[in-house]
């Protein structure tokens, strides 16, 4: 430290608007810099909890759907969650289309929930929109509920053949994830 530290006399500090302003400015700036630094450090601390690179890399899944017979369904895994792929029978398609979409809790038609040219292929997440249980009905012999689609055993949500919510506490239809068919229609890429 040099002896310039001693040059600020009480008079200088008391008088002179400039002195006051400069000193306030310095301290406010120093404290703000600390604040900015603190906030900057919080960013990595928060972002470290977001999905890591290996988890994000697994966010697309390919599923071979060619072997599914009408009336059958398979369970696959997409982002560590169950994915239901179901080939509807003509009767199931008719049933789904017979319902007036406007009367439903979450109005959607079967056509809105399937792809052009593959109206019989219903791809949904196997995650109940109520509290996240896995509904029954995808595997052989499981109850499909009153509406012939899926039935969630946790709190009794009933889904129809287009996996739309018809009865019970779930607020929305089973989610249809982003997916695409490959050109010959045998494989879907989800995500």
């Amino acid at each position: 430290m040099t002896d310039t530290t001693g040059t600020a006399t009480p008079e200088m500090l008391a008088d002179g608007e400039d002195g006051v302003r400069r000193r306030d400015f310095l301290n406010i700036a120093a404290v703000s810099a600390t604040g900015i630094g603190g906030v900057a450090v919080v960013y990595p601390l928060i972002s470290q909890m977001a999905p890591s690179a290996d988890v994000l890399a697994e966010s697309s899944t390919e599923v071979d759907v060619s072997a599914i017979q009408p009336g059958q369904a398979i369970k696959a895994i997409f982002r560590k969650q169950p994915l239901f792929v179901r080939r509807l029978t003509q009767r199931e398609i008719d049933e789904a289309n017979a319902v007036d979409a406007g009367s439903l809790r979450d109005p959607q038609t079967l056509a809105e929930r399937t792809k052009e040219g593959h109206r019989d292929m219903l791809v949904t997440m196997g995650v109940c929109t109520h509290l996240g249980c896995v509904p029954l009905g995808a595997a052989e012999g499981e109850p499909r509920g009153e509406f012939g689609g899926y039935f969630c055993p946790c709190h009794g949500s009933q889904f129809d053949t287009a996996a739309r919510i018809r009865k019970g506490p779930a607020p929305t239809n089973l989610e249809v994830p982003e997916y695409e068919f490959n050109p010959d229609g045998t494989v879907i890429t989800v995500g």
Partner: peptide, 13 residues
């Protein structure tokens, strides 16, 4: 190594 390579800012931590 997972922390160093894949976790967001894991290398910094």
């Amino acid at each position: 190594e997972h922390i160093m390579r894949d976790v967001n800012w894991g290398w910094l931590m």
